[in-house]
């Protein structure tokens, strides 16, 4: 299984090493509203979960994504 950083880097085509807990739409190129839909699709497919829409809207950084996924039983 990949880490959250690896999924984020795969979706936006950035180096995984350039990402940290605070990486967010402000710091990652391509993470706009359409990019966020692509990211959520990739997270759902990769971790085999269906993420509630209120959680989708809270996923504003790598750290927040990791924390929310924990509630779905995913440690990434």
């Amino acid at each position: 299984m990949r880490t959250v950083e690896e999924v984020v880097s795969g979706v936006f085509g950035v180096e995984p090493q350039s990402l940290d807990e605070s990486s967010s739409p402000e710091s990652v190129e391509g993470w706009d509203s359409m990019g966020h839909v692509n990211l959520v699709t990739a997270l759902e497919q990769h971790f085999n979960v269906s993420i509630d829409i209120d959680d989708v809207m809270e996923m504003g950084s790598v750290g927040k994504i990791r924390k929310i996924l924990l509630a779905y039983g995913v440690q990434a």
Binding site: G10, V11, G13, G30, N38
Partner: peptide, 14 residues
Amino acid sequence: LDPSGGTATFAHRE
């Protein structure tokens, strides 16, 4: 290789 929306969008941006 990876026909996902994320990768297609990345390619388009590049």
